[in-house]
Simulated assay, not measured.
Amino acid sequence: MTSNILVTGGAGYVGSHTVVELINAGYSVVVLDNLVNASMESIKRVEEITGKSVPSHSIDLLDRNALEGLFKKYKFSAVMHFAGLKAVGESCELPLLYYKTNLVGTINLLEVMKENGVYNMIFSSSATVYGAPVYLPLDENHPVGGCTNPYGKTKYFIENMLIDLCKADNQWNIILLRYFNPVGSHISGKIGESPQGVPNNLMPYVAQVAVGKRKELTVYGEDYDTPDGTGVRDYIHVVDLALGHLAALKKLDEKCGCKIYNLGTGKGYSVLDMVKAFEKASGKPIPYKITARRLGDIASCYADASLAENELHWKAERSLDQMCEDLWRWQSMNPNGYL
């Protein structure tokens, strides 16, 4: 029986790009997704890009029986765990939904993995676990847990569960990848970020303004202690992020126990830097208005990703221009996302 990589949330933005890179690298992949924030259209397009069929199952991690059935059907060597709710604002309005979906879903997954002798996992964590930076750039030793919203807390709590699990049972090998801000899309323009409703993140919003779906961008705050007064973040091309998962998969082969890595570029760009870069890539003006700061937003946040470079032999290679060009290709070819 072939050994497969199970990708939970594999029809989503980062998941689908990672599935492409896994298949291109010769891995057999099975996708699980409950399709709350995703569409199976993304998997159809992954199949077009790779020329391979991708077994996909519409299963919710809260459905323990369906999950057990999936593990009976396939042999898995490792799990890449992307599945989870991820909208910061929504998590503040619906905290119980976030805790139940993200925490209980993960516990179900870990229990079923253990029952089936699968002890290798790569977990999709987030730089939100760092909270407000005490120092910059953020390295993996920076204090964690000062999360400003329930979404970030779910990532922090899951990290703690996984660390405790590895301490209790040395059969487990788990890598926690703390993402900074993924942007861009596959160079084909066939897959990309397809937010439902109003985008929560800056760049999909900018792209929708450029394509004429939205009138203007709202910039929250111009009085931060940054070069131009707008918030600074570390933006990473989604394909670089996907390749970071492949590097982590190789690390699991070393029986590495529990490891934590930042995946970012180490460079910070302001909101207005991003707007200018996208205007250049799209050839379209991006009208914007400045309003007051948002509660909970921080001035600057960017990574020290040298640990991933040293231990995983991975580094983000794609430039800001490439992020914007690839995002514009996706947005102009798919003005309504996968709809």
Results as ranks from 00 to 15, higher is better:
Leu85Ser: 10
Tyr99Asp: 00
Tyr74Val: 01
Pro95Ser: 09
Asn116Phe: 03
Lys72Met: 06
Leu103Asn: 15
Val36Trp: 08
Glu111Gly: 02
Leu6Ser: 01
Val129Lys: 05
Asn120Arg: 12
Phe82Asp: 05
Thr101Trp: 09
Gly51Arg: 07
Ile23Glu: 00
His57Asn: 12
Val134Asp: 10
Ala25His: 12
Gly131Ser: 13
Tyr74Thr: 00
Asn102Gln: 09
Pro95Asn: 12
Glu41Asp: 14
Leu22Gln: 04
Ile122Asn: 08
Gly15Phe: 06
Asn37Cys: 10
Lys86Met: 11
Val19Gly: 11
Ala38Lys: 01
Ile49Pro: 13
Gly26Thr: 05
Tyr130Leu: 15
Ala25Phe: 04
Met113Phe: 02
Ser53Ile: 12
Gly10Leu: 02
Val88Glu: 11
Met40Ser: 14
Leu32Pro: 03
Pro133Asp: 09
Ala78Asn: 03
Thr101Lys: 15
Val54Arg: 02
Asn24Leu: 14
Asp63Val: 03
Asn65His: 11
Val19Met: 11
Gly9Lys: 09
Ile49Thr: 01
His57Arg: 08
Ser77Met: 13
Gly9Asp: 06
Val30Cys: 05
Asn4Ser: 11
Thr8Gly: 04
Ser53Asp: 13
Asp60His: 03
Ala132Phe: 12
Ala66Phe: 04
Leu103Phe: 08
Asn24Gly: 09
His17Glu: 04
Glu68Ala: 15
Met80Ala: 09
Val30Thr: 00
Ile49His: 06
His57Cys: 09
Val54Gln: 08
Ser58Trp: 08
Ala127Pro: 03
Thr50Phe: 04
Leu35Cys: 13
Thr101Pro: 00
Ser77Cys: 12
His81Phe: 10
Leu85Thr: 13
Val129Gln: 05
Ser91Lys: 07
Phe82Asn: 02
Arg45Ala: 08
Gly15Tyr: 05
Glu115His: 03
Gly84Asn: 12
Met121Lys: 09
Lys73Tyr: 06
Arg45Cys: 08
Val118Asn: 01
Val46Thr: 00
Gly69Ala: 15
Leu96Gln: 13
Tyr13Thr: 03
Ala132Thr: 14
Ser39His: 15
Leu110His: 05
Tyr130Val: 12
Glu68Thr: 11
Asn65Asp: 14
Ser3Ile: 11
Leu62Asp: 15
Glu47Tyr: 06
Leu32Ala: 12
Phe82Glu: 08
Glu48Pro: 07
Ser58Val: 13
Thr106His: 00
Phe82Met: 05
Phe76Gln: 01
Leu103His: 08
Ala66Asp: 09
Pro55Cys: 11
Thr128Gln: 12
Leu22Asn: 07
Phe123Lys: 07
Thr18Asp: 11
His17Thr: 02
Thr8Ile: 05
Phe76Asp: 03
Asn120Thr: 03
Ser77Leu: 10
Tyr99Pro: 01
Asn37Thr: 13
Ser56Tyr: 04
Ala87Ser: 14
Thr101Phe: 06
Ala25Cys: 00
Lys52Arg: 14
Ile49Asp: 07
Ala11Pro: 02
Val7Asp: 00
Tyr27His: 10
Ala78Ser: 13
Ile122Pro: 10
Val129Arg: 04
Ala87Gln: 13
Ala25Ile: 02
Asn108Glu: 15
Tyr130Met: 15
Leu35Thr: 10
Ile49Tyr: 07
Ser28Phe: 10
Tyr74Lys: 02
